[in-house]
Every structure is written in structure tokens, then in C-alpha cells.
Simulated scan of single mutants.
Amino acid sequence: MNDKNTVRHIIEDLLPLYEEGLLSEETARWLEAQTADDADYEKLVRLSGQSLPKPELPEPAEDYAKMMAKINRKLSLYQLLFMAISFVLAIRTSLLNESFGFVLWYAVLGFVTYLFYKQMKIVFFLSFAPVFLWSIGDSIYEIVNGSGDGGMGVFVFSPLLVAVVTASIHCLFAFVGSLMGLLALKIRKMGEESE
């Protein structure tokens, strides 16, 4: 590399600092002396004083809006799917049916829901609301038809209290599942950080 090229590269590097007034007096004087008699350097100084044109950002295309609408539809579909699974679990494996399979299934529901949404409140809602509604409906049905056998205190407690207790029990197991999901995410994150 010859001296002229080296000086040119140094001048190019110093010009932004010179324009901002960030060079020491000695360096600024040296730069001015180097560029004073050379037409190429003077042109370089003139060009560096001009601001670059700002690129025009394109307007969001209709494709973007369509893409976002498609994503929102898919998310809504997943939410409906989780809600449907939650209702099926509430109907098939609830305490009211004297089945204790809900323990495993609600832990799995809590685990999967937490991995998907990463929010405990959604796990709570998807595990509590369907069982609560199913329990109220079942209690009212038993009271209306007079077929209640006194199980779960249907006639002692109000249907609302029975529904809250039953849904809370189911929610507890979903919460345990969501804690396992949280733990799985933490372990995965620690594994990624250690790599």
C-alpha cells in the first residue's frame, strides 16, 4: 500500500469526526493541511459534509395485512382447539363422573397449554372454566330431575360452591402440569446458554 492510499484511508476515517467537531486541534489542522491542495481530497470533504439521503420505507403491503389475518385465524383455531379439548376433558374425566383419570389429563393439559402460551392465567382459565360450567350444569340437572344421590353434597351445598370446589381441584392438577412446563422451558434455556 502506498503512502497516498494510506493517507486517503486515514482522511476518510477522520472526516466524520471532523464534521462533528470531535477531533483534537492538531488532528483537525493536519486534516485541513492534507486536503487543502488536493482536488480529490477537497471533493471528499465536500461529499462528507452532505447528508446521505434517507431511504423511503415502503408502506405496509396488503400482503402483510393478509399474513397477519392468517396468523390470527390460526391462533384463534388453536385457542378453540384447546378450549374444546378442555371441555372434553371436563366432561369425560371429571370428579363428577367418579373418574380419577382427570389427574393425569389435567396435568398434561396444563403442561401443553403452558408450553404453547407461556402464561399461567390461560392455563387457569382453560382448566377452570369448562369444569366450572360443566359442574354447574350437572348440579342443576340433578336438582331438576331429582336424581341426585347426595354425592358431593349437591343438596347440602349450592351448585355454585360445588362447581367452584370441583373446578379448583381440576385447576390444581393443571397448575402442577404448567409448573412442569415451566421447569421444562427453564431446563431447555439453561441447556442453550451452556452451549
Rank of each mutant, 00 (worst) to 15 (best):
L183N: 04
T35E: 05
D37Q: 08
W134R: 05
D63E: 15
F102R: 06
N2G: 15
V164P: 04
E25L: 12
L44C: 13
S194W: 07
M152V: 12
K186W: 08
L52P: 04
F100C: 03
S86C: 01
L95N: 10
L81T: 13
E25F: 09
F175I: 05
K186R: 14
L57I: 10
A69F: 02
T27F: 04
V88F: 11
D3T: 10
I187H: 06
K66T: 02
Q119C: 05
Q50D: 07
F128L: 01
F155M: 12
D38E: 08
S86R: 02
I143E: 08
L17R: 05
S147T: 15
E25Q: 14
F87W: 15
R73C: 06
A163G: 03
E142K: 15
I187S: 06
T35P: 04
G150V: 07
V108D: 01
E25A: 15
L14G: 05
A61D: 13
Y64K: 13
A107I: 05
I143S: 13
A184L: 06
Y18T: 00
K186I: 06
T113M: 10
I140W: 12
Y78N: 06
H9V: 11
I10M: 04
H9S: 14
T166D: 05
L96V: 09
F155G: 09
G49E: 13
A28T: 07
E32G: 03
A129R: 01
V131T: 09
M190V: 10
A39I: 07
A65E: 14
F175T: 13
E195P: 03
L133V: 14
A84I: 09
A167S: 13
M83Q: 04
I85W: 09
H9G: 04
V112H: 05
S178A: 15
F128C: 01
F82V: 01
V123Y: 03
L96M: 11
F111T: 02
M83L: 15
S76E: 06
E56S: 09
P55C: 02
Y18V: 01
T6W: 10
R92M: 10
S24K: 08
F100R: 09
S194T: 11
V154N: 13
S94A: 02
F155A: 08
G177T: 05
V88H: 00
E12R: 14
L89I: 09
P55G: 07
S139P: 08
A65N: 09
M152G: 06
L47G: 14
E62M: 12
L109T: 01
E20L: 12
L31H: 11
V162I: 14
E32W: 02
L75H: 07
F125G: 03
V103M: 14
K70A: 12
P53S: 14
K54C: 04
D138I: 12
P159V: 10
F82H: 01
K43T: 08
R46Y: 03
Y64A: 15
K54A: 15
Q34V: 14
E98P: 00
N97M: 14
P16H: 02
L52C: 04
A107Q: 07
S147F: 12
G150L: 09
Q119T: 11
A167D: 09
L115Y: 01
L179E: 09
K70H: 11
S194A: 13
N97W: 10
P130L: 00
W30R: 10
Y78M: 08
A174H: 02
P130W: 01
T27N: 08
S168P: 01
E195Y: 08
A163R: 00
I10K: 05
I140S: 03
E19T: 11
N2P: 10
L179G: 07
A39K: 09
